[in-house]
């Protein structure tokens, strides 16, 4: 049985206690999306300021457990300043780390592969959340903010002519 230390890394506890970008940007001009986890009542509010295809600023509101809050905080640090394409790629790699593969057409083998050391190194602090995958019921906590960011970014794409 995996131990608690696999789940609650120091980075996670730090981002839970001191969340980064914990704010709500004025909307409009910021885009806004809300995400809910109906099973546990976790809520996340994302406000996103996109200019010329790049995330200029991002705010996180709502409430939730240490996994959902720290994942949201780490996410803001990871995507701030990135282009929408880069952010989409970040969402895909994070979800892959959580064993969620977007494309059902992907070869079956790759769906069971765990990220390589090089891939984890590229994820930086986000790799601290890798232990969540050993606690299947908590995966939904970790991906809530990322799914909500996807929805928010879709609004940016929709808004473009």
């Amino acid at each position: 049985m995996p131990g608690l230390e696999d789940l609650y890394r120091e980075i996670i506890l730090d981002h839970y206690r001191n969340p980064r970008n914990a704010k709500e940007l004025e909307s409009p001009p910021a885009l806004r999306a809300e995400g809910y986890n109906p099973l546990c009542g976790d809520e996340v509010v994302i406000t996103l300021l996109v200019d010329e295809g790049r995330i200029q600023d991002i705010g996180i509101g709502g409430q939730g457990c240490s996994i959902s809050r720290s994942s949201a905080s780490l996410m803001t640090v990871s995507v701030k300043g990135k282009t929408l394409e880069e952010a989409s790629a970040a969402i895909r790699s994070f979800k892959a780390m959580m064993s969620i593969h977007e494309s059902s057409l992907a070869p079956a083998a790759s769906q069971t592969e765990t990220p390589t050391a090089a891939e984890l190194a590229k994820m930086g602090e986000l790799a601290a959340l890798q232990g969540v995958v050993k606690f299947p019921v908590r995966i939904k906590c970790a991906v809530l903010a990322w799914n909500t960011l996807s929805e928010c970014m879709a609004k940016a794409t929709d808004a473009q002519p």
Binding site: G3, L4, L7, Y8, L39, C40, G41, D42, G64, C65, S66, I67, R69, F135, R138, C141
Partner: peptide, 20 residues
């Protein structure tokens, strides 16, 4: 948070319900 609490309790064999 109730989820974190429930997780720590589970590591001691204590089962409680967390949520709404």
């Amino acid at each position: 948070h109730a989820h974190d609490l429930s997780q720590v309790l589970d590591s001691r064999g204590v089962c409680v319900r967390a949520g709404h």
